[in-house]
Each structure stands twice: as structure tokens, then as C-alpha cells.
Simulated assay, not measured.
Amino acid sequence: MSSTDVAPKVLKLPEVLDLNAASRLHEQVLAHKGEDIDIDATDVTRVGAQCVQVLLAAALSWRAEDQSLRVNQASDAFIKTLQLLGISDEALLPKEMLK
């Protein structure tokens, strides 16, 4: 269960989330398994489908374990790329970030 008295860990995403970044992102996410995570995507300028897949899989896994994994800050490039890919998962694109 998610603990309400512990602040979520913040995972700051790099500027480029391409194929080369996918395995590193996977490792970073798994390192926080069992913890609530807030994702900071404010510096992201380019997003590849492989990294989106890692984030979606993580969101589903966290949700299944009643943990929180959500993007709490995102660049326009991050948001627009996910929208172009048809991603509507609220963990990755909270309604308040959509314009």
C-alpha cells in the first residue's frame, strides 16, 4: 500500500529519452519499486517510443501494487509526443497538463 506519510521519490528524466536511454530509464524505475514516484519531465526535449513503453509499463505495475507513479511536471515536448502517440494514461498525462 502507498504510504501517505512518506514523500514520493522524484525521478528527474534526462533531456533525451531515446532508444539508448530506455534501459537506463528501466533501471532507474526498478530501483524505486515499492515506492511512490513523482516524475519530473521538465527538461525532456525528445521522447522515443521505447521510453514511453517503459513509463507505461511502470505506471501499470505501480497501479497494480497500489503505488503512485505519476508525471507531476512535464515539458511541452514530452506532452506533445505522448499525445501524438495516442497516450492518454492519466499517470503519464494528468488532465491538468493537457491544453
Rank of each mutant, 00 (worst) to 15 (best):
Met1Val: 12
Ser2Met: 09
Ser2Phe: 04
Ser3Gln: 07
Ser3Phe: 08
Thr4Ser: 07
Thr4Leu: 05
Asp5Ile: 15
Asp5His: 15
Ala7Gly: 08
Pro8Gln: 14
Pro8Ser: 13
Val10Gly: 00
Leu11Lys: 02
Leu11His: 05
Leu11Thr: 05
Pro14Glu: 00
Val16Asp: 10
Val16Lys: 12
Val16Asn: 11
Leu17Asp: 07
Leu17Met: 15
Leu17Arg: 10
Leu17Val: 13
Leu17Asn: 03
Leu17Phe: 05
Asp18Met: 05
Asp18Tyr: 09
Leu19Ala: 15
Leu19Lys: 09
Asn20Ala: 12
Ala21Glu: 12
Ala21Phe: 03
Ala21Lys: 01
Ala22Gln: 02
Ala22Arg: 00
Arg24Leu: 10
Arg24Trp: 12
Leu25Met: 12
His26Thr: 10
Glu27Ser: 15
Glu27Asn: 13
Glu27Met: 15
Gln28Leu: 02
Gln28Ala: 07
Gln28Thr: 00
Leu30Phe: 14
Ala31Cys: 02
Ala31Glu: 04
His32Met: 15
Lys33Gln: 15
Gly34Pro: 01
Gly34Ala: 07
Gly34Glu: 01
Glu35Phe: 07
Ile37Pro: 06
Asp38Glu: 10
Asp38Ser: 03
Ile39Phe: 13
Asp40Pro: 05
Ala41Arg: 07
Ala41Ser: 08
Thr42Tyr: 03
Thr42Ile: 06
Asp43Ala: 12
Val44His: 00
Val44Thr: 00
Thr45Phe: 11
Thr45Gly: 08
Arg46Thr: 07
Gly48Met: 15
Gly48Lys: 11
Ala49Asn: 05
Cys51Asp: 06
Cys51Phe: 11
Cys51Leu: 11
Val52Cys: 13
Val52Gly: 11
Val52Leu: 12
Gln53Tyr: 07
Gln53Ser: 06
Val54Ser: 02
Leu55Arg: 09
Leu56Met: 15
Leu56Cys: 14
Ala57Thr: 13
Ala58Asn: 08
Ala59Cys: 13
Leu60Trp: 05
Ser61Trp: 09
Ser61Ile: 09
Ser61Gln: 11
Trp62Gln: 06
Trp62Arg: 01
Arg63Met: 10
Ala64Asp: 15
Ala64Tyr: 10
Ala64Pro: 04
Glu65Tyr: 14
Asp66Asn: 15
Gln67Trp: 15
Gln67Thr: 11
Ser68Gly: 11
Ser68Met: 13
Leu69Lys: 01
Leu69His: 04
Arg70His: 00
Gln73Cys: 06
Gln73Glu: 10
Gln73Ser: 12
Ala74Thr: 01
Ser75Met: 04
Asp76Tyr: 09
Asp76Ser: 03
Asp76Asn: 03
Ala77Val: 01
Ala77Leu: 08
Ala77Glu: 05
Phe78Thr: 12
Phe78Gly: 09
Ile79Trp: 02
Ile79Glu: 00
Lys80Cys: 10
Thr81Arg: 01
Thr81His: 02
Leu82Arg: 03
Gln83Met: 10
Leu85Asn: 06
Leu85Arg: 03
Gly86Met: 02
Ile87Gln: 08
Ile87Trp: 08
Ser88Glu: 12
Asp89Gln: 10
Glu90Tyr: 03
Glu90Pro: 02
Ala91His: 04
Leu92Asn: 02
Leu92Met: 00
Leu92Gln: 02
Leu93Phe: 08
Leu93Cys: 07
Pro94Phe: 07
Pro94Cys: 12
Pro94Asp: 13
Pro94Gly: 13
Lys95Thr: 14
Lys95Val: 08
Glu96Ile: 10
Glu96Phe: 09
Glu96Met: 08
Met97Glu: 02
Met97Val: 01
Met97Lys: 03
Leu98Lys: 14
Lys99Thr: 09
